[in-house]
Amino acid sequence: MKLPHFDYQAPASLDEAVALLVAGDGGARPLAGGQSFVPIMAFRLAEPSMLVDLRKIPGLDQIEIGDEGVRIGAMVRWRDLLDDARLASALPLLPAAIDHVAHYQIRNRGTVGGSLAHADPAAEMPTIALTCDAVIDVIGSKGKRSIPAADLFTGPLMTSLDSDEIITSVLLPAWPASRRWGFQEFSRRRGDFALAGIAVFYDEDASGVVANAHIGAISVGDTPLRLSKAEAALNGRKIDEATLAEVAAVASGEVDPNGDIHASARYRKALVGTLLSRALSAAANRKA
């Protein structure tokens, strides 16, 4: 399982990187952490003409927390997120989800930008971006643009990025301190891709009535999913047993996952409801 032949460049600026991608005419690929893409090459499922390594480009490894939210540079590694104590209050859903990403060694090299560009529906970061209404900043030969997460993911391992575009950062909007959240993922073993996962957050009024429900689902569709029907069912309700059961049923009903060698479609569908119920339960019961 040796890698196929490719050329390699590690430019020092985004402009150079974009120029290399343009020159590669669709055959060149940006390389971030490589933790998903190198295995794909090892199986010879991808044979790029050139890898454009982003590791020398300055300014892509920052985590900035401000009024607009949390801005994460594309080359920020999972490990950097887990080490950043500020996120526990600034965006607690994020480290809770990233804790499920692969294993220790992978988390030392895998990056936020790489994961978003890889667009694996079974991965955590794309679903978190979608759930949080994140905006992804990219640069390419036509200049810079900002892509809402909802418009980035177009299919399994497919995005709306042009072949010469590079993700530079992702902005996850500001998170009120009182916001309630839950993250549940179930995989066959620690670090495996999820059979299903749920990210959820909502705001509530003084009486505990839910508003602004955001529910994202991992690994039950061709892309990361927002469960809009379940969100609608949750808004305006208080979290109690009846709500949990009803919202779980709605969530189960609105996904149509495939079966594979690890789990049947029927199981995955039900698991979405189970995990959502558990995530909401955790959200409601977490001490503020």
Binding site: P39, A42, L51
Partner: peptide
């Protein structure tokens, strides 16, 4: 050679990494 088993783990700049998922040029 596809980043799952961990046998190739080496320490690069203080971090444990999979030696099969990092290019030598990196």
């Amino acid at each position: 050679e596809h980043g799952v088993c961990g046998a190739c783990t080496v320490i690069v700049n203080g971090d444990a990494v999979r030696g099969c998922l990092m290019l030598a040029v990196q």
